[in-house]
Amino acid sequence: MDKILLIEDDDIIGEMICMYLTEEGFLVHRCLNGQEGMSALSEFNPDLILLDLVLPDYEGTELCNTLRSLTPVPIIIISSNSKVSEKIEAFTVGADDYLCKPFSMHEMKARIGVLLRRFKRELPARQEAAPARQEITVPPAELEINVEKRTLHVRGESIEMTFSEFELIRLLIEHPERVYRREDLINALRGFDSYINERSIDVHITNLRRKIEVNPKEPRYIKTVWGVGYKFVI
């Protein structure tokens, strides 16, 4: 039985989702705020998370970013905000899908099914993959990245990053000199049915250059390969 963690403070919507998914054979645990959701993550060990963007104690995208750093399971955002900018921000911080309220329960179930099947299909590869290096230092020790703690230090200074920015810099640093097409980077972040586009990748790269380069206009590390994509140079 697949387990769904629902983080939703609206009683009417929360109860409707709980009742529907329970009748459809899911085990559902509902939390009313972000703090409860964080606690339930390890205790309930869900297979998928449904996350409302408007909560009494957390800003939704901030919580999504935190959850993504702690678990690889699919995250579906449920929100009354249908703006494209809000959707892009949600995907940037780790969401796998986005449902606008009001939505069809049948559509919600279908999207849950798609994400669960994809995640389970990828799970054996995740489990069999060789352990990644936990700490990577770029000579001459200007950049230090800790994969487990999800931290990056640039010339000794701790750098704040979004989920996608960290995943991008980690991927580039782990494979120096490899040229990545924008499509490759999109797929590495969100999977093949991603909503993130090439423009989003360019924005992330620009932000990373501002954070790690001495002169972002003449980058030393993240190089543009014109007509192709980007690569990391040591």
Rank of each mutant, 00 (worst) to 15 (best):
M108Y: 13
R111C: 13
L116K: 09
R118H: 12
R118C: 03
K120F: 08
K120C: 06
R121A: 06
P124N: 05
P124R: 03
A125W: 02
A125V: 10
E128A: 13
A130I: 15
P131H: 04
A132E: 04
A132G: 09
R133S: 08
R133T: 11
Q134A: 04
Q134F: 04
E135T: 13
T137S: 11
V138G: 07
P140C: 12
E142P: 11
I145D: 04
I145V: 15
N146I: 09
V147I: 10
K149A: 07
K149P: 03
R150K: 13
R150P: 00
R150H: 13
R150M: 14
L152T: 08
L152K: 08
H153M: 13
H153F: 14
V154W: 04
V154D: 02
V154L: 06
R155T: 11
G156F: 06
G156L: 11
G156N: 09
S158A: 15
I159G: 10
E160T: 13
M161N: 05
T162I: 06
T162R: 05
S164A: 14
E167T: 05
R170G: 00
L171K: 05
L172I: 14
I173W: 00
E174W: 06
E174N: 04
E174S: 14
E174G: 08
E174D: 09
P176L: 02
R178V: 07
V179E: 14
Y180E: 00
R181M: 12
E183T: 11
D184E: 15
L185C: 07
I186L: 04
I186S: 10
N187I: 13
G191T: 01
F192C: 10
D193F: 09
Y195L: 05
I196Y: 05
I196D: 00
N197M: 11
E198D: 10
R199V: 12
S200T: 03
D202E: 14
D202P: 02
V203E: 01
V203K: 03
I205T: 09
T206L: 09
L208H: 07
R210M: 08
I212M: 02
I212P: 08
E213Q: 09
N215E: 15
N215Y: 08
P216L: 03
P216F: 04
P216R: 08
E218Y: 13
E218W: 14
E218R: 12
E218G: 01
Y221M: 06
I222H: 07
K223D: 00
K223A: 01
T224P: 06
V225Q: 10
V225N: 07
G227H: 11
V228A: 09
V228H: 07
V228S: 13
G229R: 11
Y230L: 02
K231N: 04
F232C: 05
